[in-house]
Nucleic acid binder design. Sequence first.
DNA 1: CTGAAAGCGCTTACAG
DNA 2: CTGAAAGCGCTTACAG
Lengths: 324, 324
Amino acid sequence: MKDVAARAGVGLKTVSRVVNGEPGVTAETTERVQAAITELGFRRNDSARILRKGRTASIGLILEDIGDPFYSAFSRAVEDVARDNASLLFIGSSAEAADREQELALAFCARRVDGLIVIPAGTDHRYLLPETQAGVAVVFADRPGQRIDADNVLSANADGSRQGVEHLLRHGHRRIGYIGDLPHIHTAAERLRGYREAMADAGIEVAPGWVAMGPTDPERVAADLRAMTGEDGVTAVFCGNNRVSVSVLRAVDSLPSRPALIGFDDFELADLAGLSVVAQDPAGMGRTAARLLFHRLAGSAGDFTTTHLPVHLIPRGSAERPPR
Amino acid sequence: MKDVAARAGVGLKTVSRVVNGEPGVTAETTERVQAAITELGFRRNDSARILRKGRTASIGLILEDIGDPFYSAFSRAVEDVARDNASLLFIGSSAEAADREQELALAFCARRVDGLIVIPAGTDHRYLLPETQAGVAVVFADRPGQRIDADNVLSANADGSRQGVEHLLRHGHRRIGYIGDLPHIHTAAERLRGYREAMADAGIEVAPGWVAMGPTDPERVAADLRAMTGEDGVTAVFCGNNRVSVSVLRAVDSLPSRPALIGFDDFELADLAGLSVVAQDPAGMGRTAARLLFHRLAGSAGDFTTTHLPVHLIPRGSAERPPR
DNA sequence: CTGAAAGCGCTTACAG
DNA sequence: CTGAAAGCGCTTACAG
């Protein structure tokens, strides 16, 4: 910028005015400055600008894994809202590791992002306290932030499982199994709770072998599926998330008899597989979380909120078959 | 930092040393500084650090759409390599719009990213010349950069189509149709070229109605599928990308008779649908592009390269059926 | 082992 | 309409 000023024979401030389209510069001066800019290949350094101005016009997004279709739809919605607010987006995956989540969050904060959208992997978010006190806005999505006051945007997880179970009950099932993710994950625990409550309300005692929580790798899921659908086993299986559903679909055809199926979370081609699902709205969740974040950044002060986004049941055949 | 220095009764430089874990500070002094840091809730401002140091330890990634599973696997690989190189990742979607690609790229450059990985939407990348001259490393992936010298990492697109067509020929098909994406997209054009060459080599003249290029929305694809598989139409259809494949799978069951199918690019559940594919390696592409970028940033000077990543055919039944 | 001075590339607040 | 000075929060190069 100094070079441009020298070349155009003007002061620094005049170059700044031209670069930022501020008023109060003669057409002739503007032209001379513009010429110098092109000749020298000048590009404004936004880092320097940011250092002086305060707000960085960037936000950070911490996901579990961009590879999961739920999170990619979520991310796209966040990105769109960020663009509407003239903000750039840092992104990172925690891979379900608390220390990686924290490392990413603090790295983003060190770059002075204005705000953070976090899909929590960890269970203690007090490490963000100094950041929020310094003015960084934080919104947790999909799972709530823990040991910290903040805004949360969640799906109606327990309610969704309840809906799914009641749907299976209406189609005559009573021995209903549940395959879920690791139980320390909030969504996994909530969905299991909804299942248990709906079963209890129907007066059905859940046998120990009917519930299997654990990592969502295909082998574990297939083994648990086989175990719970054996002789006198369950006639229907509730899949706790889209990873479980996919693994179950891959394994179900090798079972002696096919159980009724319902999955939590919709995904591409679930329709072709005829899988009935309790559908979440990942784009809606991303949009809601991002709008809330920019609301806070715009100075909205009210109490912290927890939003539960509704889910809805999509029947496609797999859950509407009677018990064998 | 000034406040910390004052509180600890030391100089600025000493605080800097402690914050960065540089040697040459007494344990006692370190302790006093650390105490001041916690008491004041000090957080180093990396923007300021970056301004002084030069390199920003961040790269930008411009995708067509994070929602597409090909690009989400790609992104995850880029992110992993970035982390290995202690670099943060800006991400943005062009939505196949050249102006949005440019806007994102220049915004990232204004933040002084060290490098850029671009999946091009536009067809003229001369706008990046001032940036590359200023030292920004750029790698194009999936599609080549145009009107600019740079590194490219691509799939063997034409070769892949050729493999797919030859596979169908081996199973007795001669009337083979092709449904692809908009022809101005490089991958779409290359894959079509491979198809045409393989057909010509087999001595088959491609009838005008056998090729349909256009947007990948389900309605367009379904209409073209119906049109080309009518009376005396094609007996096999080559799907030019995973968007086309999904739309074809959704529409194919309503046809009077089911054509043989093969798709370019693998995707989740293609196995359940029994779809034979020419598989790309999105994670490998992301990894290769990112490694190349950091190689350049580490000072590697050689000529610009264009890498063609191999693809491989996965038979799953849909392409191995003879003509009706 | 420690610190004062200068500077990274901008903008702010002010004066002319 | 224009510009000189100070400062954003750090690091570099140097001196003690």
